[in-house]
Amino acid sequence: MARTHPNGPRPTHMTAGRIGLYAFLVIAALFFLLPLYAMIVTSLKTMDEIRLGRIFALPETLDISAWITAWSGACMGTVCVGIRTGFWNSFAITVPSVALSVFIGAVNGYALSLWRPRGASVLFGLLMAGGLIPYQIFLYPMVRAMANIDLYNSLAGIILVHVIFGLPLVTLLFRNYFVSVPEELCKAARVDGAGFWRIFFEIMLPMAVPMIVVVSMLQFTGIWNDFLLGLVFAGRDNLPMTVQLNNIVNTTMGERTYNVNMAATILTAIVPLAIYFLSGRWFVRGIAAGAVKG
């Protein structure tokens, strides 16, 4: 067999293995998209249509009444105001929790990596140990502690709980990010007369923007999706969306309104989903940021 003389760019071949690989990827993507598809079409059907049992069929007519009910009329027990209160509660809990935990974690990471106070490694070790223990273990002592400082069943209380439980991970990520910053940068700023906070705000934070974005997204989705802490610490008036969704879906009075349940579930999941879709670029950049010099 005559071998072609190699010259120019190496030719690409579509081999059987490659076709199989793409086929697998397409099937896997479909597999994961199927539940979402079923939820969307079900939420747009009327109950009559749902009773036919054709779960993957497209709706005959687009009916958005289930979405409206889910948002503003679905019942949790005897209260029928929909999931919107939970939606705003979730924002009220998540936004301050994310902002505070990211800020405090960034300060922690900066101090631990660039100032190395006495006992920094012990402190960091303890923080990590705390982060590794399942947080369910802390529930009861935490409830007692919150009750003691009059923050149990309050918005401030649930925010504090989220900040505390978020700190180990946020601190770890920022510490590892700032460890890669040359120490001389800090020294140069000190010669220029800048102190702890000025170096942090004017030099370190601007460098850490990709990390801030990634950590904020992780914290946002984590806190938005939280169920247990919200249920235990938020109190009746501040229940987050996840808890209210559970209350709607698990309330059985008469017929199960699948279309309303599906719509409510999608409404709950849409915020973290949207964040990932809109900031995927930043997310990848932040993950890679540790590997590349600023």
């Binding site: 040359p182 001389e184 940068l185 020294k187 140069a188 700023a189 000190r190 010669v191 220029d192 007369g193 004017e202 030099i203 601007p206 460098m207 600023g294």
Partner: peptide, 21 residues
């Protein structure tokens, strides 16, 4: 004294320029 009060200027091996400025 703090570095800034010593009347010195310093140049580092790694340049140590503030990257976002």
């Amino acid at each position: 004294d703090e570095p800034k009060d010593r009347g010195i200027g310093m140049v580092f091996q790694s340049y140590a320029l503030y990257p976002r400025m």
